[in-house]
């Protein structure tokens, strides 16, 4: 394991510093970056220059749509030929009404293949292992994950710290460093406390409301706190 590549993860609160860190890392030649964010962000995309490698989903969509239309054509025409029944003295294969079926098949299969394309292309479920992911990324934190040579570990860590990371994890383990780390932690504790306070205020509000309603509602509240403290 020690000889293989290492994963270093920097967690950020602010987008601007994150973007700067990305730019710096890329300038230093670390291209194997992965950035986590709770929201799609153009600045991050620009920093990573994702535009140079466009998404392949469009091919899925296009092929799916063409395939769908073909399925629609085959469906209508072939089944009509297979069971040729005259209605209202009209031709067995009557194209105008079939256009609707063809259109719907096109949309259906096109849409489903787009979904398939999304799953395949974004490698959902397959990609990052859980320890390299932080649950706060879906809340309000951003993150940079760098896959690097063990030798570069320190250098990257320094860059991350230089650009004001909240914390650094190496292979999923929190790495604390000297003073900066202490300061950070203090700041973090304070933050947590503040959060707790806000929550308490909130809880009280909730409780007051609950009183108006019923006791049962109160039982639900511990759940909230549990979730929050997690």
């Amino acid at each position: 394991m020690s000889k293989s590549n290492q994963n270093i993860l920097g967690i950020y609160t602010y987008v601007d510093v994150l973007v700067d860190a990305i730019k710096k890392l890329r300038a230093e030649g670390f291209e194997n970056l992965r950035v986590f964010s709770p929201v799609p962000n153009h600045e991050i995309e620009d920093a990573l220059d994702t535009g140079k490698e466009p998404s392949k989903i469009k091919y899925f969509t296009f092929c799916g749509a063409i395939l769908g239309a073909l399925v629609g054509v085959c469906f209508t025409v072939l089944t009509s030929i297979d069971w040729p029944i005259v209605t209202s003295a009209k031709p067995i294969v009557s194209i105008p009404p079939y256009m609707i079926i063809i259109f719907e098949c096109m949309i259906l299969i096109g849409g489903l293949s787009t979904f398939l394309g999304l799953i395949i292309n974004s490698r959902l479920r397959k990609d990052t292992s859980p320890e390299l992911y932080d649950e706060r990324f879906s809340d309000n934190k951003f993150g940079i994950l760098v896959n690097c040579n063990p030798d570069d570990l320190e250098k990257i860590e320094n860059i991350l710290r230089d650009f004001g990371t909240d914390e650094v994890q190496v292979n999923g383990v929190l790495k604390v460093e000297a003073k900066e780390e202490e300061i950070k932690e203090e700041a973090k504790e304070e933050e947590i406390k503040e959060e707790a306070k806000v929550e308490e205020v909130k809880e009280e509000e909730v409780k007051e409301e609950a009183k108006v309603e019923e006791v049962k509602e109160e039982e639900a509240n511990p759940d909230i706190t549990e979730v929050k403290n997690d």
Partner: peptide, 24 residues
């Protein structure tokens, strides 16, 4: 589906979403 919110997930996701919107 194991969503992580990584940048390329977002990249494909927004494209797919756009195509879907175009179809829908």
């Amino acid at each position: 589906l194991g969503w992580k919110g990584s940048s390329w997930e977002w990249g494909h996701y927004t494209r797919a979403y756009f195509y879907f919107a175009c179809f829908a």
